[in-house]
């Protein structure tokens, strides 16, 4: 090996080629050119802040509904009629009320057809106050009345298919409903989730397509798969914390129903991950082609995850 080196050095000359003049030229240029600020990194950070703001605004804290105190269930039913109602598809949580008056919330289903409205109207006509609080699992239902009033009710299965328990969230009063058609409520008004098996197959196909496109992009650009996905330790820690916290929050909401979540919030949360990653890769100037492939990877992953969640 050293023979090669010796011979090459001998042939191209052993005298110093990196002269003092070259060094001085470099030092002069280094002193003359101040590093330029990269405005695009600033734009990326501004984008992240905007998404974070969107996340906060779309959370329940940014969308707290107006409560009209002073009216109990019976009073509202005497004054007006049901216009439409929403049933939350999230798991029941005794402490929280997750039905919202919009289908943009995860699992929230709107019912405004005449037959649905008449059905719920007929159920509510037969309520009577109940002294007790032994109800357990149930459903959250938000009812919009014709005059703009809202009823927030927790509906509970009772001792038979003709009885149902009910709690008015405004007043905290318990009621019972006796009606021969109550069974319809249990069977016809379940959250209508899409075909989960079909959705899984679609997600697997899309994930495969994503992998194929990534590999093709690497091959086309004559690049190898990166051994280190992160630019440095700080990048890795922030990405892991961000991803784990977003996934855990999402999973805990879907499993426990402790919060109603706007679909925009989910989307913003998922977009936050590629944005932060892109900002880091820009800051540390990763090869632009790798950066594009990474952006594709994260956006495609976010898209597939969003498809899985937002379709609920």
């Amino acid at each position: 090996m050293t023979r090669w080196k010796e011979q090459i050095d001998q042939e191209i000359g052993s005298e110093s080629k990196f002269t003092l003049a070259t060094k001085e030229k470099i030092m002069q240029k280094a002193a003359a050119h101040e590093p330029k600020r990269d405005w695009r990194a600033g734009m990326a950070i501004a984008g992240i802040l905007f998404i974070a703001l969107l996340l906060v605004l779309s959370s329940p804290y940014g969308h707290e509904q107006q409560i009209q105190p002073g009216k109990d269930l019976e009073q509202v039913l005497e004054e007006t009629e049901v216009k439409e109602f929403f049933i939350s598809g999230l798991p029941f949580n005794e402490e929280k009320f997750t039905a919202k008056d919009s289908e943009f919330y995860i699992g929230n289903k709107k019912y405004d057809k005449q037959e649905d409205v008449q059905f719920i109207q007929s159920l509510l006509k037969s309520v009577s106050v109940y002294e007790g609080d032994e109800f357990s699992e149930g459903k959250d239902i938000l009812i919009n009345m014709e005059n703009g009033d809202q009823l927030k009710l927790k509906l509970y299965p009772y001792d038979s298919l003709t009885n149902m328990g009910l709690k008015d969230m405004e007043t905290g009063l318990f009621y019972t409903v006796t009606n021969d058609d109550i069974w319809k409520f249990y069977f016809d008004y379940r959250p209508k989730f899409v075909n989960i098996a079909g959705l899984y197959i679609l997600a697997i196909l899309l994930a495969g397509l994503k992998l194929f496109v990534e590999r093709s992009l690497l091959k086309r650009n004559n690049l190898q798969k990166r051994r280190k996905r992160f630019m440095n330790k700080r990048h890795m820690i922030i990405m892991v914390i961000l991803t784990v916290s977003i996934l855990c929050t999402g999973a805990s909401i879907l499993l426990t129903g402790w919060m109603a979540v706007h679909k925009g919030g989910i989307l913003a949360g998922l977009l936050l991950i590629p944005s932060v990653n892109y900002a880091f890769e820009r800051k540390y100037e990763l090869n632009p082609t790798y950066r594009k492939i990474d952006l594709f990877h994260y956006l495609a992953t976010a898209g597939i995850t969003a498809l899985m969640i937002l379709w609920l």
């Binding site: 080629k17 990196f18 070259t22 030229k25 470099i26 240029k29 280094a30 050119h33 590093p35 630019m231 440095n232 540390y284 100037e285």
Partner: peptide, 24 residues
Amino acid sequence: EWTAAEEIVQDVFLAYHFQQERFR
């Protein structure tokens, strides 16, 4: 070519100088 090599090496050290945070 030595002239080109000198220009290249100038660019190399200037790139290193201005983007030192890239060296991890």
